[in-house]
Simulated scan of single mutants.
Amino acid sequence: MKIDWIDKLRRGLQTIAFCLAIASIQYAFRPDHPFEPPLVYSLCIGICTWSFIDFGSQLFPSAQISGWPTGLAGKLLPVAGIALGYLVGTSLADWYFGWSSFANASRQQLILSGLISAIVGVVVTYYFFTQGKNTLLEKQIGEATRLATDARLKLLETQLEPHMLFNTLANLRVLIGVDPQRAQDMLDRMVAYLRATLAASRASNHPLEREFDRLRDYLELMSVRMGPRMRYTLDLPADLANLNVPALLLQPLVENSIKHGLEPKLEGGSITVRAQRAGSTLTLLVSDTGVGFDAQTALTDGFGLVQVRERLAAAYGEKGSVERNSTPGQGTTVLLHLPTNTNTA
């Protein structure tokens, strides 16, 4: 079994702290005696007991939930460790001072000393046991939370993909009857887009550069249908290209811009998608020059914006936010604020 030396060091230092506290308590009750003897005996007995129990636990199969040996070994290990720790620790301290506690101390003193060591050993062992159990449980909770978040993001992505696909197929069906050549071009674009989408769907997040590549495929697909009525600009600074973001984060916003902004406007308009960073915050902007919304309509989120809010909440919690501004006749702007120092994997 692999030994976690950092964890061992942490428990060893905690044991030393317990020993110093016990020695200080003993000295407080007998201030007329030197501090060195209780300090040395406490350290020797405590460190030996901890070593026998902590390293001894590595020799037996352990329960996954507690990290403690199972069966009879788990019950006998503390008893044997405390007894051996007391005997070996006392012998080491005797050797340091050049006397023999077992030979010179009275029976009552030996019983009292052993009883104190046993009580302290049980308390400290139980403390380490519960601490280790809590640590493992926290790790399991964190792993479960991560898996639940990944599952939620995947679910949201499967909801968004059909939403876009059905809209595109409906448009393609109409176009086949009126302009077969444009329909063929649109179908080729859709195949290229779906291939890129399939590759991206294997991960819950990907570099921002790949997100912009998918947007370019999608916007080219929409350009076949809308022609000169739609223009677009994608602005991604090179230093932001490798930042990770949830997959399929921006497309529903672009789709909203086309469906609710540009399509209802006779002359169409333009869409701008831009990434910029200020300190530790990444801001993603999706803006259109479409019909816009009035104040009352702007208060209600559509399907795409609801999904984006949920994806940000699942990936970043309260650190991610969405801001939308719209002016009737002038267009709509959506700003996504994401932390750049958080891994969404």
Results as ranks from 00 to 15, higher is better:
225 R>G: 00
185 D>C: 04
25 I>G: 07
174 V>L: 12
297 T>A: 15
61 P>A: 04
36 E>Y: 05
146 R>Y: 09
172 L>V: 06
55 F>V: 00
8 K>W: 05
116 I>Y: 10
33 H>P: 03
159 Q>M: 12
133 K>M: 14
219 L>K: 01
343 N>G: 10
209 E>N: 01
27 Y>F: 11
130 T>L: 15
17 A>C: 11
321 S>L: 02
115 L>V: 03
288 D>L: 01
135 T>M: 08
132 G>W: 09
325 N>W: 00
171 N>P: 05
58 Q>G: 05
163 H>A: 02
80 A>G: 14
264 P>W: 12
263 E>M: 12
182 R>H: 14
212 F>R: 02
256 N>A: 09
274 R>Y: 10
179 D>H: 06
132 G>F: 06
133 K>D: 03
226 M>F: 13
196 A>V: 00
344 T>R: 04
21 A>P: 09
170 A>K: 12
328 P>L: 07
190 M>K: 02
42 S>R: 03
146 R>W: 11
344 T>M: 13
21 A>Q: 06
301 D>V: 00
197 T>C: 01
42 S>V: 02
230 M>W: 01
94 D>G: 04
49 T>F: 08
170 A>S: 14
6 I>R: 06
129 F>W: 13
241 A>N: 02
53 I>H: 10
141 I>V: 13
126 Y>C: 08
250 L>Q: 02
132 G>S: 10
300 T>W: 06
169 L>Q: 03
47 I>Q: 12
160 L>V: 06
120 V>M: 13
231 R>E: 15
310 E>Y: 09
